[in-house]
């Protein structure tokens, strides 16, 4: 059963659902609102990648149209937060205008935090790619495949045997903000009311 990740401090509780596919955003929102009154929520935010062929603005517009069926107020632009009793917003990674994923932002961090490790990881992934064939290359050939593999290489060096999430948490991937990371941070801060 898909269960959200919960994060909590003295000021705010955040539940994070991981969903797959655009259709699942609306379904997950509808399901959550069926068991959780909207009046108990302070904010609903959505983060999505754009590693498909659709332009980020198109993806945002399509998603917004489906979300309006469940929550009547969403901002007109990705990256913005609609204020009100319930704050809402959609951030299209990596920067609301370019194609990409969260890994684009993480690699910017890696370039700043581990400038000597990043080229090694990139070389390793590139060399390894040449040794793989057939089905073994399927995931790597996806639009964000090389970036994800590179981030995972650095993550596993920093936290051997742990998931990349553990490394992001422990190793300060987001401690030094690039301008694009700053935009994401601003979005999240506004969403949680800071």
């Amino acid at each position: 059963m898909p269960v959200p990740y919960f994060y909590q401090n003295n000021d705010v509780s955040v539940a994070i659902h991981v969903v797959g596919g655009d259709g699942s955003f609306a379904d997950t929102l509808q399901e959550s609102l069926a068991v959780l009154p909207i009046t108990r929520l302070a904010a609903v935010g959505i983060l999505l990648d754009t590693d498909s062929e659709k332009a980020p603005s198109v993806r945002f517009d399509e998603l917004r149209a489906t979300l309006l069926a469940y929550i009547p107020v969403w901002p007109n632009q990705p990256g913005a937060v609609a204020d009100g009793p319930l704050r809402t917003g959609v951030f299209v990674l990596p920067d609301n205008t370019s194609h990409g994923t969260l890994e684009d932002l993480l690699l910017e961090s890696a370039a700043l935090s581990w400038p000597e490790t990043l080229p090694l990881a990139r070389d390793f992934v590139a060399n390894a790619q040449a040794t793989l064939t057939g089905a073994d290359l399927r995931e790597l050939r996806k639009p964000a495949g090389l970036n994800k593999a590179t981030v995972a290489c650095i993550g596993t060096l920093l936290r051997p045997g742990k998931s990349i999430q553990a490394s992001i948490d422990d190793n300060g991937w987001l401690a030094i903000h690039s301008p694009r990371q700053q935009n994401l941070q601003t979005f999240l801060n506004r969403l949680i009311g800071r």
Binding site: M1, P2, E31, A34, V35, L36, P37
Partner: peptide, 24 residues
Amino acid sequence: VERFAPDLLRRLRFNRGLDVRQAP
């Protein structure tokens, strides 16, 4: 009164395992 359509109810019960019998 809240109405649950069968499709939503099926997802809530069989995909999410959520208890819908009582409003939170």
